[in-house]
């Protein structure tokens, strides 16, 4: 027997989600089918709501539901410190460590020529625009991209440009495993990594 086309379509869409293989997609599809209609409606609504109300912060490109995110508008935080991360999830991981009170800049990826991702595909231009009002004497940029080769290359790329315009730049380094993604580093390691960042 062939599956009805509506079911096939649902399985295909679910299967596009990260971390969901064909088997889980099928399981999820059957699960959704068995849910009461009201719950399915709520889930669909939640997805649409999130999509419609969430956007990227105008300054740091973090995910937010306001023009500027709550970190950028927090005056208690150190506005002379910008921590550059690849993904919003990395930002959250660093926030959980509780060791950092500066601002962020989310690149939304890392340099990866084989995937067609160059500097123009990331929010690098916006970062440098942001840095135009930056005080060179007191300001600092912390590069907290992943320790994968792509994350390292991105950090090196930014470091060259930042040094050219005379901004103090450091790279988190301490205790991160080779080839590690920030998102999966535990909070202690990450807190230590930020405290013991090295100058580039």
């Amino acid at each position: 027997m062939k599956y009805p086309s509506a079911l096939i379509q649902l399985i295909r869409e679910l299967g596009k989600l990260p971390g969901v293989g064909p088997k889980s997609a099928q399981r999820l599809a059957f699960h959704l089918f068995n849910l009461p209609e009201e719950e399915v409606r709520e889930l669909a609504q939640a997805i649409l709501n999130a999509k419609n109300s969430l956007k990227q912060c105008k300054l740091c490109y973090n995910i937010t539901d306001t023009e500027l995110c709550s970190i950028c508008t927090d005056h208690q935080r150190n506005h002379e410190l910008i921590c550059v991360v690849e993904q919003p999830a990395d930002l959250l991981a660093i926030e959980r460590s509780g060791e950092y009170d500066g601002l962020y800049h989310v690149l939304h990826g890392s340099l990866s020529p084989m995937n067609g991702i160059g500097p123009d595909q990331l929010t690098i231009a916006a970062l440098f625009e942001r840095l135009q009002g930056f005080d060179q004497n007191t300001g600092e940029v912390i590069l907290a991209t992943a320790t994968t080769v792509e994350g390292e290359a991105t950090a090196m790329y930014l470091a060259r440009l930042l040094t050219d315009i005379g901004i103090t730049t450091s790279r988190i380094a301490y205790g991160l495993p080779v080839g590690g993604d920030l998102e999966y580093a535990d909070e202690v390691t990450l807190g230590r990594a930020i405290t013991n960042r090295r100058k580039l």
């Binding site: 340099l111 020529p113 160059g118 500097p119 080769v149 792509e150 390292e152 290359a153 090196m156 790329y157």
Partner: peptide, 30 residues
């Protein structure tokens, strides 16, 4: 070794396209 192979792949992709000088020098350094 895994990282090295990855860098070679990335560098080759860059060589096949129009590589910016800074980008190529970064991947070469790595």
């Amino acid at each position: 070794h895994r990282e090295y192979n990855r860098v070679v792949e990335q560098r080759n992709a860059l060589l096949k396209g129009r590589a910016g000088e800074l980008s190529l020098s970064i991947w070469s350094a790595k």
